[in-house]
Design a binder for these strands. Structure first.
Lengths: 144, 144
DNA sequence: TCATGTACGACTGAAAAGGTCGGAATTCGT
DNA sequence: ACGAATTCCGACCTTTTCAGTCGTACATGA
């Protein structure tokens, strides 16, 4: 359940890598470091560029750099940029409509659950992923 | 992102319906009440029976009943029964192994996020879904 | 025994995910 | 300045998964 796609996985891995390796890194660098198909990763990084999370640089020593500080980029930002603004329930769109199922009684309850999950993901930053002990400290607050 | 399947949606809708309508309800009843294909819903309810969340009864006035009180059944129970024990990250299985990607640096961070989400879903019961104001009260605790 | 309703599996069409290919754009060496 | 190397970029194809359908067998009660 709640499986997020490999694309999102790869995106998070790449962001973490870029956070730990300052300076321009090519898609090939990141891909080889983690055994990810280079072309596929490149496509993911393109989306992150469009979402203003990365800056790309062409040419021989080109590559990708974080557009802003890793502490200001959340996991939710990355996932949303890659997978789009989907929601927990299938029938709920961005407009909040439910289409053909006229009496979808679980829509509103799940919308609030969805909101809680968004908050959890928004509180985890790329920087915290590079510092496991810091993140563990952050997450205990959410369990109470 | 984090879209759960229609099957899980339908499962939650059915559980909520059964919680509000005590007594045996057929799959057809629930399906017609919400515009869901009856055969598909039946297959979903079978999984819930196997997971000990529902009791089925054959025959003329047969149907499905909640196996236990709606307050003791969480949304997580229902989703897990239908979609299986999947996890947030693609590379993380039930054994915690990462297969071919040898250096998956985000596995451990996301595992904790996954755990937080499980907690959120586990705290929402079917009963609370029938009482919106109760659930809203529960959820504000999670946002702090 | 017949209408009703569950249980179970196989099959099909559609959509999305995962992965691949060739080309456009840019920089560096000369 | 020019070409080769390098990298980004966008269109294409393959595989898997989801959603839904159909047919059959089994159980129950009037």
């Amino acid at each position: 359940m709640l499986k997020l796609t490999k694309k999102a996985d790869y995106g998070l891995i790449a962001m973490r890598y870029l956070a730990e390796n300052p300076g321009s890194c090519s898609a090939k660098d990141v891909a080889e470091a983690h055994g990810i198909p280079a072309e596929l990763l490149a496509k993911i990084l393109q989306k992150l560029v469009k979402a203003q999370l990365l800056r790309s640089h062409h040419g021989v020593n080109g590559g990708y750099v974080l557009a802003r500080d890793a502490r200001t980029i959340s996991a939710f930002d990355v996932i949303k940029a890659i997978e789009g603004p989907l929601f927990l329930t299938s029938c709920v769109t961005t407009k909040g409509e439910c289409g053909h199922v006229s009496r979808c009684t679980v829509r509103e309850p799940l919308r609030k659950v969805n909101q809680s999950i968004e908050e959890v993901l928004s509180k985890i930053t790329i920087y915290e992923m590079t510092e496991p002990e810091v993140m563990a400290e952050e997450l205990v607050k959410l369990g109470s």
